[in-house]
Amino acid sequence: MLVCRSLRMILTAAVLSVALLGGSQTSAIAAPAIPAPASAPYSTSGKVGLKSTGDLKSTGDRTASSVCFFTTNGDYVHRSGSDASGHGWWVNGNCRATFAVVTVQLQEYYSDGSWRNKGAPGRRTVRSGGGRGNRATGRAGCNNSSVTGWRSVIDVDVVGVADDPRKLTTPGRNISCRRF
C-alpha cells in the first residue's frame, strides 16, 4: 500500500507543479505592480510530496534492499496566539535510523499567485512518531487578522541515511493572520 501511495505522490507532484507554474505566469500579466498577501484559492493551494528514500518499485524484498521508507507528516497551518504556526514530524517505516532533522518553513500566499517564505524555519532533531518533544514547529508573527493563505513546507533528513530532496507541502489554508 505504501509503495502504491509513494508512486502516486510522485505523479501528483509533477502534474501540480506544472499547474502552479502556469498560474504564476498568467497572474503576472494582470497582477498589480506590488503583490500583496492574499487569501488563497483552495484549488491551487499546494502540492504534496511524500518522501521516501528511494524508488520502492524495485524493492520486492525490503530486507534485501538498501531502500527504506518513512513518511513526512504535518498539520494544517493555524493561528496560535499572535502567530501562524505549523508542526512537522516523521514516522519511520523500516529505516535503520533513530533520529531525523525535521525543518518546517511557513509560506504565505500573495496576490500574484506565489507562496513566499515567512518567519524563521523551525528545525529540530527528533525521534520518529511525532510524540512529546518530537515535533518541529514553524512560526510567523501576524501583523493583523486579515484572512490570508498559509501553508508549510516540511523537510525530513534522516540522520545517517541518504534520502532524496522531496519535501511535503501541506495544503494551503486561509486563516486570520497576515504578515507583511
Partner: peptide, 14 residues
C-alpha cells in the same frame, strides 16, 4: 495534511 489525502472530517491544528 496532504493535497491528495482522502477522507477525514478534520485536519489537525494543535
Amino acid at each position: 495534511a496532504a493535497e491528495d489525502a482522502s477522507g477525514g472530517i478534520w485536519g489537525m491544528n494543535d
